[in-house]
Simulated assay, not measured.
Amino acid sequence: MKYVVIAATLAAGLALAGCGEQTTVSGSLPTVPADIQACFRAGPTKVPQKALSVAEVESLWKEDRVRLVIEQRCGKRFLAWYGDLRKGWK
């Protein structure tokens, strides 16, 4: 089960690493793309309020590490989007 969660999370992260479109912008700032917003809003791994077994702690730690990788990719995608936006800004 935990491997399915990890695999699904990695797949979602790879999907978010796609190329963005470049547009020429003027006037007000555009909205951040929805996929980037959703990635950052997903938040950290939820830790249950109970005594955890060693296996549960290890599983939560692994989920947290996967989430960190996904957020790093979101950050890189956001910076690339913002860089493209700045190039086309008038």
Rank of each mutant, 00 (worst) to 15 (best):
R77E: 04
V4T: 08
L14E: 15
V66G: 07
D35S: 10
R86I: 13
G20F: 05
A80M: 08
P44T: 04
A51T: 12
V25P: 01
V57M: 06
R73F: 14
M1I: 06
T31Q: 14
V66Q: 10
K87N: 06
L85H: 07
P30Y: 07
I6R: 11
Y82G: 01
R77Y: 05
G83Q: 10
S26G: 07
Y3T: 05
R65G: 01
P33V: 07
V57Y: 12
P44L: 11
E21Q: 11
K2T: 11
L29N: 06
K90A: 06
C74D: 10
P30W: 07
L16D: 15
A17F: 14
W81N: 00
T24E: 09
E63N: 08
A38C: 02
E21I: 10
L29I: 10
Q22D: 06
V4D: 13
F40T: 02
G83T: 11
S53V: 00
G27A: 07
P44Q: 08
Y3A: 13
R73A: 15
V54I: 06
L52N: 03
K46W: 11
A80G: 06
R86T: 08
D64F: 09
A15K: 13
R41N: 08
S26L: 03
G75P: 03
Q72W: 07
R41A: 15
Q72L: 12
K87T: 13
G18N: 11
K62S: 09
T31K: 12
S53L: 03
C39M: 00
D84R: 10
L68S: 13
P33Y: 07
K62G: 00
K50A: 09
A8V: 02
V32K: 02
E21M: 02
V66H: 02
A17I: 01
K46P: 06
G20P: 00
A55M: 03
W61V: 11
I36K: 00
R65V: 15
P48L: 04
L79M: 14
G83Y: 10
T45V: 08
L29A: 10
E71F: 13
V69H: 05
A17C: 14
A42L: 00
L52Y: 05
V57K: 14
K50L: 02
A7Q: 13
M1F: 10
R65L: 11
S53M: 04
D64Q: 12
F40M: 03
T24N: 14
R65Q: 13
A15T: 11
L79R: 15
W89P: 00
D64S: 15
I6Q: 07
L10E: 14
I6N: 00
L85I: 04
P30M: 01
E71I: 04
E71N: 09
G13M: 04
I36L: 11
E21C: 04
T24M: 11
R41K: 15
R86L: 13
A17V: 03
L16K: 06
K62E: 09
V5K: 10
D64Y: 09
P30L: 00
Y3W: 13
G88H: 12
K76D: 11
V54G: 01
I70S: 15
T23D: 05
S28K: 15
R77F: 03
C19Q: 09
P48K: 02
T31W: 03
T23F: 12
T45E: 09
L60A: 00
P48F: 04
S26E: 12
A51C: 02
G18H: 15
A34W: 00
S28P: 09
V4W: 03
V4S: 02
K2N: 14
V69G: 01
V5M: 04
A38S: 12
Y3H: 01
